[in-house]
Amino acid sequence: MNALAQATRPPRADAAAPVPATPPRPRRRRGAREAGVAALFLLPALLALVLLRLWPLADAVGTSTQAAGLGKSGFVGLDNFVRILGDATFLDALKVTLLFTLVVNPFQILLALAFAVILVQRIPAVGVWRSLIFLPSAVPQSVSAIIWGIAFRPDGPLNGALRLLGIPAQPFLTSEGQALMCIVLVVSWVGIGFWMMFLIAGLNDIPRELYEAASVDGAGWFRTFFTITIPQLRRPLLFVLVADTVANFLIFAPVQILTRGGPNGSTNLVMVEIFNRAFVTGDAAGAAAGTILLVLVVLAVVSIQFRLLPGKD
């Protein structure tokens, strides 16, 4: 009877009504909010890109089409490019830069690769050796140039060591035949450790199973290196090659501090020539045209490198 009475009893007026479920938030509104948060995080990088890359590039393009010389103004189109390409000094600087790049790029990358291969092995104090080789990369190029400038002096430590070996003192930075190689040495001293770290990271990503399988098959070190290490390291090598090429085309501080483009233009790289045109002779339009031409040359060289060393995919 009690159960029947409870079943037929009308519901109380003050009984709590079921709470309706909260409708899901529209997906479009959530996506817009997430995009806004992402844009907020990207804003500093985008501002840096616009202010430090795109705006200077646009300004250089605009300046390169204006009349050259103080007190002159007006649009001249491609006249400054024609003038620069007909200037023997600029063309010589471009040749020196290409020669410098052809020498310094293989030298840096081969040594960086050799150090990387050695320092991924189980050798005593491997962390210390990595730190010592990488340490010059943490020093500003200007400071490194000053240190090497002291070493290259006629009465400096390098000539002192040569005298102890019975070798006559060398002119180094004052010799047309040696000055560019001295710049190669300074730049490589800074760059080898930096690129080595990227190659070490690439070597550590190679699956160990590949080397174990090669060992089971009886492959020696030479064959393993060229059939496993180099193909697996193709992408890091491509990155290092392209980044090193761009960096070496833009070398300025060591040359400006050590030789200022001399002697007789033997170290007059394009960046030094552009600097002299802009801030020594006051040819801002010619310097801007030279900058645009340098960017085009770098893009052409990098495109060739991508074709010669394609990615794994």
Rank of each mutant, 00 (worst) to 15 (best):
M181C: 10
V272C: 04
L165R: 05
R130W: 00
F226R: 03
R33M: 15
A32D: 10
G202M: 07
D217K: 14
R30C: 11
F306A: 01
P136S: 04
A278R: 02
W195M: 09
G261V: 03
A278H: 02
A151H: 07
G86T: 01
L51Q: 02
F249Y: 10
R9G: 04
G156P: 15
L203D: 12
A247L: 09
P254S: 11
E34H: 11
P207G: 10
L102M: 06
L43I: 05
R235H: 13
M1Y: 07
T89E: 07
Y211W: 14
L185F: 15
L164K: 15
Q6I: 10
L180Y: 09
R83I: 00
R122D: 05
F100A: 06
D283H: 06
I206R: 15
L308E: 11
G265M: 07
W221C: 08
F81W: 12
G286A: 05
V103N: 03
L199T: 12
I200Q: 03
A219W: 03
A3D: 04
S73C: 07
T267C: 02
Q178W: 14
F194L: 14
V246D: 00
I292V: 15
I167T: 12
S137R: 08
L165P: 03
L210Y: 04
L40A: 03
A253V: 13
I150C: 15
A3F: 10
I167Y: 06
D59H: 02
A17R: 12
R30M: 15
Q170W: 03
V50Q: 11
S64P: 00
A16Y: 11
T267D: 01
D283K: 14
L164Q: 12
A201F: 13
L54G: 01
G127R: 00
G218C: 01
V187Q: 05
F198N: 09
L4I: 05
V19M: 06
V50F: 06
S144V: 13
T22F: 07
F226Y: 13
S131C: 06
A39Q: 15
V187H: 13
M271Q: 05
V190S: 15
L135H: 08
G262I: 04
G31M: 15
V103H: 07
G36S: 07
N276L: 12
G265A: 03
Q141V: 07
A35G: 12
V82N: 04
G290K: 00
A15M: 07
V104H: 01
V272P: 03
A285Q: 14
F115W: 05
D92Q: 13
L78S: 03
V302E: 00
